[in-house]
């Protein structure tokens, strides 16, 4: 039989657990952000965005070639 007080205590414990877990997750994201900065991923914000669009099928010629095949 659960008393109201006991339920409250149970809930509190879960909240502490959740806070601890979420803090750890947040710290992991902070660490990965710092890692990303240190490995130079923020050095250039323009070229990588273009690079990912580059590839076969981008230009009209490539499209035509594919149709021909």
């Amino acid at each position: 039989m659960w008393s109201f007080g006991a339920l409250y205590l149970q809930l509190m414990n879960i909240i502490f657990l959740l806070i601890a877990a979420s803090t750890v997750v947040a710290l992991i994201f902070l660490a990965s952000f710092i890692w990303a900065v240190r490995t130079g991923q923020f050095d250039d914000d323009r070229a990588p965005a273009i690079r990912i669009l580059d590839g076969p099928g981008r230009s009209k010629e490539d499209m035509n070639e594919r149709k021909d095949r």
């Binding site: 947040a26 902070l30 952000f33 710092i34 240190r38 923020f42 050095d43």
Partner: peptide
């Protein structure tokens, strides 16, 4: 280049601010 350091500082401050 914008110093990488500045990005880390920004990240730390933003992280702390949000939490």
């Amino acid at each position: 280049r914008i110093p990488r350091d500045l990005y880390v500082r920004l990240g730390v401050a933003a992280f702390a601010f949000g939490n």
